[in-house]
Design a protein around this nucleic acid. Structure first.
Lengths: 206, 206
DNA sequence: CTCAGAAGTAAGCAATGTTTACTTACACGC
DNA sequence: GCGTGTAAGTAAACATTGCTTACTTCTGAG
């Protein structure tokens, strides 16, 4: 966790990436908001001012880390539900939507610090850094799949946003360490069922 | 904003409350996570160490401020929708539920820093500090009212949690300064309509 | 081989959280 | 009324942090 090919070389190493990884690891432990550049530099065996050769200031590091967070979330989506694949039945489409929700919640739980950063004052930039489609595209696709198999009605942007914010709220509430005692995972499926119910019987648009 | 009956008296004043108010004001401006005890003490005309006579450490202050946040939210609910009142029709019950959701979102927007604190690592203790019922009770009551007038089916704890997390997610996403450009308020009503749709046609429980 | 520039160092500044030993001033028993 | 105990505030100090500046060192392109 400390070394990163920066050992043998006296003065050089791939800092920047090492700093990002360090922050990512700290985020995994939940202690991101209190991350210290000096401590990081110390642990990476480098002088305090070295980080400023790669990041304008602490916020710049946090900002890029937040961006990486969306990348990591997309990777998790891809692992749980390859973007290229398609649903082959109604029950399959439904199962995929639930899997997406569960991945979302699980990510928030396992990377609480990063999660907070992503949706905090920084973050929410979500340009697609790699070739992967931005995270929102997974949701659109899952909803479209369900609509195609008749599980729900066709969705507009407003309905998409509803589905997103419903799962997002669930994640935020369940990921909070304050609700740690009730760490049950099953409600996610039921929540998704309720979202599907709403999208299957949408309110009459006035 | 600086004075608080602590002026004339040379050494005393109602610190503690002044500190909480100071933090609350800072929260209103959004700059809570970066609140400085020294700066606060300075602005309140008191020495740096004075705060520690009332709070064990910085986190203790933030923690009580978070608790006050839930109190302020309850006050807002009460203002928008007196707890003692009852819905007198189906459309009224529905209107009240929407008003609750709008109050929730508005509070998150106007007190972003406090909002983040309340649902962050601190907070979520929500003991009812004053005589008011805890915030969650408003939601329960609004849902029960709607069920009583046939707007939705009777709700269980799981359905309550669904409604809460859906509105909570909406608040969190819309309150984030990153989504400031799209500061439209109308979607709240539509979101609530979708929540109602879900609770009116709940999924068959297996 | 040189040498310009990237990458890292050392030292320093201002600010913070927190602790300690000290003073002050209020309140209350006598 | 008057000492006096105690809560509340002060002053000084320590460790740590973000960040800047002037300096060194290493590297890789020409």
């Amino acid at each position: 966790m400390t070394d990163r090919t920066a050992r043998t070389t006296h003065h050089h190493g791939n800092l920047k990436e090492a700093l990002i990884d360090y922050a990512l690891a700290a985020a995994h432990a939940g202690a991101l908001e209190a991350l210290s550049l000096r401590q990081a530099s110390r642990d990476l065996g480098v002088s305090p001012g070295a980080a400023y050769r790669h990041f304008a200031d602490r916020d710049a590091l946090l900002s890029t880390v937040a961006a990486r967070g969306f990348d990591a979330l997309a990777a998790r989506f891809e692992a749980a539900l390859p973007f290229a694949s398609e649903a082959t039945s109604a029950v399959e489409a439904r199962r995929r939507f639930v899997a997406l929700g569960e991945a979302y919640v699980a990510f928030a739980r396992e990377n609480y610090g990063l999660w907070r950063l992503m949706f905090g004052p920084y973050g929410l930039t979500w340009v697609p850094p790699t070739g992967r489609p931005p995270t929102y595209a997974w949701l659109e696709k899952a909803l479209d799949d369900m609509a195609r198999w008749g599980v729900i009605r066709p969705v507009d942007a407003s309905a998409q946003f509803f589905a997103w914010s419903a799962i997002h709220g669930l994640s935020d509430l369940q990921a909070s360490p304050a609700s740690a005692p009730s760490r049950t995972q099953e409600p996610v499926e039921h929540q998704c069922a309720l979202i599907i119910a709403a999208l299957a019987n949408p309110p009459a648009k006035k």
